[in-house]
């Protein structure tokens, strides 16, 4: 455990001292702020439009912040995370392999599992902070409006789990290569695949379709954004995280029997 924290702490600090971390953080919050402000502006425009037409009063009674501001905001942020998380995780193993510090790690009395968990915790910590910073949007809505807090909380939980799952996948991509660009692109492709894997589900027979749908991260994330927390989704996210770390550990360990 001590080793895990040593590695996690080093990883975390190393991310925070790299310029790319600040570029990613700034970019993420810039886009997030832009989405948020425009969604709120559009929402208020719709409300005023609807209420100015008498007969649309009914429709205006249905307008709510959760569906019209938070849900699209979360969906957009998820897409941005698909691109930004690999930028953070691409370094974790690839960089160590390139500079040779990998040899230091692997010749220390530390298990490969500990190395992987440590690196995961470090990167996940950074990404969690990144997601946590977007809570200012929720706080603004809660301060000036009355969104359903439960639905909002489920959405944030979904976004956090999604981001952490992405970290596990990105880490695996990084463990496959010593080239950061390849690591980033591989990670990006894997994450995109997780996003779109359910697309052919409707034209497939029931069972394969259901399996593809289950595999898609959007299925579980989308449900959480609407305010439902399903134990199935929690198991899915946990499995993706554990599975990603397991594959990473395998990939690190594979040096030993190649």
């Amino acid at each position: 455990m001590r080793n895990v924290f040593a590695i996690a702490g080093r990883e975390f600090r190393s991310i925070f001292t790299s310029p790319i971390a600040y570029v990613v953080l700034t970019g993420f919050l810039l886009l997030g702020g832009w989405f948020f402000f425009n969604l709120v502006a559009r929402f208020n425009l719709l409300v005023s439009l609807y209420s100015s037409f008498q007969q649309m009063g009914d429709a205006s009674a249905q307008l709510n912040l959760n569906e019209m501001v938070l849900a699209p905001l979360f969906q957009n942020l998820a897409v941005v995370l698909v691109i930004l998380v690999p930028m953070i995780t691409m370094r974790s193993f690839a960089e160590e392999k390139r500079t040779g510090t990998y040899e230091l790690l692997l010749t220390s009395p530390v298990g490969t599992g500990q190395i992987v968990v440590g690196k995961f915790l470090g990167a996940a910590g950074f990404i969690a902070i990144m997601v946590a910073l977007t809570s200012i949007y929720g706080l603004i809505l809660a301060a000036y409006g009355n969104p359903e807090i439960g639905v909002m909380a489920a959405g944030y939980l979904g976004l956090l789990l999604l981001a952490i799952t992405f970290v596990a996948v990105g880490l695996f991509a990084s463990s496959l290569t010593e080239n950061q660009i390849i690591a980033a692109v591989t990670g990006l492709v894997m994450l995109l695949l997780l996003f779109v894997i359910a697309w052919p589900a409707d034209s497939l027979p029931e069972t394969p379709g259901a399996i593809l749908r289950y595999l898609a991260v959007t299925e579980h994330f989308g449900q959480m954004v609407t305010g439902i927390i399903d134990t199935k989704s929690l198991i899915y996210f946990a499995s993706m995280i554990v599975g990603g770390m397991f594959l990473t550990q395998r990939s690190v360990e594979s040096v030993r029997w190649r």
Partner: peptide
């Protein structure tokens, strides 16, 4: 349905 909500500033 989800409760209608507003944000005003």
């Amino acid at each position: 349905t989800l409760r209608a909500s507003r944000v005003q500033f």
